[in-house]
């Protein structure tokens, strides 16, 4: 069945389906029960499943993730909501030193299927700590899987795939994309979660991004097309592991790669993609890989976010530089 849904609603329906399918799936987080979460992603779920499956937790992020680990040891599949990107750090140790390493410490005798949902990214004009893109910290950590849906359809399917994964998954939800609607085929069988995907074919330059960047790359491709430049747009979808095959195939065709991201460029997902493509497709490249990132400064006051974050213009500027080689 096809429904026209926002990303927030699509994830909500995905959570609902996962909870109906498996009684061990429980939700934990701050204000996720009665309120339905500050972005309403869990709206209505406490009504349907009760307070034993939708837990309004005490206000403590390390406590949320740490107790989720204990619940996983007990056989549950907890889905934790971190209220905003900038508030995941109090839970950092439990995610990086505990959750990520439990499987190896247990030598496979026990799985740790914990999902950590993090609304992330800018473009919403919010105050400090509410617009960050901290995905690189988690991508750097072995033992975690990291994904980010860019569309309502991916939101609906990928949240279910993340929950059914037997490994910890950090699930980054681009909050700038929470509200625009598009069609979701809720009856479709989705492809693998860890697959990058060509979302617009083109022949001149390959542009890669994830989360809210994907829509911006598509906008850029539209503008470029008007100027006779053909961009091939790839949605990474999975940040760890990264599926390179579609990217390498595309670069073999275009010879040029631009990687866009909202995070600062230093030691970022974009750096990883750039380095790997340079290693694996050196002879296909006609130009150096170019990253379009936020600046390496803390997220500035929201009045300046338009200068801090990548824009369609800056992406097109990078495309021009790439074509100039």
């Amino acid at each position: 069945m096809t429904e026209n849904l926002s990303l927030a609603k699509a994830i909500n329906l995905g959570l609902q389906k996962a909870m109906r399918d498996d009684p061990r799936v429980i939700l934990m987080g701050e204000d996720i029960g009665t309120l339905g979460g500050v972005f309403r992603v869990t709206e209505g779920l406490k009504n349907e499943f009760g307070e034993n499956r939708v837990l309004d937790t005490p206000l403590a992020e390390s406590g949320i993730v740490g107790s989720a680990i204990g619940l996983a040891m007990r056989g549950y599949r907890p889905v934790c909501e971190i209220q905003f990107d900038g508030f995941v750090y109090p839970a950092f140790d439990q995610i990086v030193s505990q959750l990520a390493k439990q499987t190896t410490r247990h030598q496979g005798t026990q799985a740790f299927p914990v999902v950590i949902r993090i609304p992330y990214g800018g473009h919403i004009g919010a105050i400090e700590h509410h617009q960050e893109s901290p995905e690189a910290y988690f991508v750097h950590t072995s033992g975690l899987r990291v994904v980010s849906p860019a569309t309502p359809s991916d939101g609906f399917h990928m949240i279910q795939q993340a929950i059914s994964s037997n490994d910890p998954v950090v699930f980054f939800e681009p909050k700038a994309r929470y509200w625009p609607k598009s069609d979701v085929d809720t009856g479709a069988t989705p492809g693998p979660m860890h697959q990058s995907r060509v979302v617009r074919t083109g022949s001149d330059v390959t542009v890669v991004g994830h989360g809210a960047m994907v829509a911006m790359l598509l906008d850029a491709a539209e503008v470029a097309a008007g100027e006779g430049i053909s961009l091939e747009v790839i949605d990474l979808r999975s940040l760890s592991p990264i599926d390179y095959d579609p990217i390498l195939a595309s670069v073999q065709k275009t010879g040029r790669l631009v990687v866009a991201q909202e995070a600062p460029g230093q030691a970022s997902v974009g750096s990883e993609v750039a380095a790997t493509v340079a290693e694996r497709a050196f002879y296909s490249l006609e130009a150096p890989v170019i990253r379009v990132s936020a600046f390496d400064v803390p997220f500035p006051p929201a009045n300046l976010e338009g200068y801090y974050l990548p824009s369609v213009d800056r992406i097109l500027d990078a495309v021009d530089r790439s074509r100039g080689f």
């Binding site: 429980i26 034993n52 390390s62 406590g63 993730v65 740490g66 107790s67 989720a68 680990i69 204990g70 619940l71 996983a72 040891m73 007990r74 056989g75 549950y76 140790d93 439990q94 030193s97 505990q98």
Partner: peptide
Amino acid sequence: TQTLHAAGYAMGIGL
């Protein structure tokens, strides 16, 4: 860190 794992496990006993 294990105090939280234990607290979560105990919550699971309750559930």
